[in-house]
Design a protein around this nucleic acid. Sequence first.
DNA 1: GCCAACGTTGGC
DNA 2: GCCAACGTTGGC
Length: 152
Amino acid sequence: MNYFLVKTEPNVFSIDDLKKKKSEPWDGVRNYQARNIMRDHMKPGDRVLFYHSNACPPGIAGICTVASAPYPDPTQFDNKSRYFDPKSSVDNPKWILVDVAFERKFKRLIPLDELKQYPELAKMRLLQRGNRLSVMPVEKSEFKFIETLVHG
DNA sequence: GCCAACGTTGGC
DNA sequence: GCCAACGTTGGC
């Protein structure tokens, strides 16, 4: 079992949207590091912190799980999509994603400001200065610590 | 809306 | 392969 974090802007796709849809292809990721993490490291059943970025306040909203093997992001082939990539092809797709499934919404959102206060989380990639990665690994100990912050 | 950080692009 | 220009992310 591995642990991760994904970022999303809640006005685009929130934890409530995921709850309604139950499962969702994590499309639109156009960063090689983030792609490699989905392609090479995520396995069905892995658990993923669901982070709301560009929100008031930004923070962790809940947990989802990896719900598929990696496969090509369909939006890269769709010239009507904002994620269309003319340099990619069906034969040699550039962008790979996984589906994520809703697990739970936290009873309270854990704000970024609060996360920064815990020494236990000081090494989280999310909290490193200038970090822009939208899909990243999380240590098991960090994940478990965050779960203890929300009861229910 | 600002801007720091940093990834990508493209000319050379 | 260097690096300046440009675009994007995301907190504030």
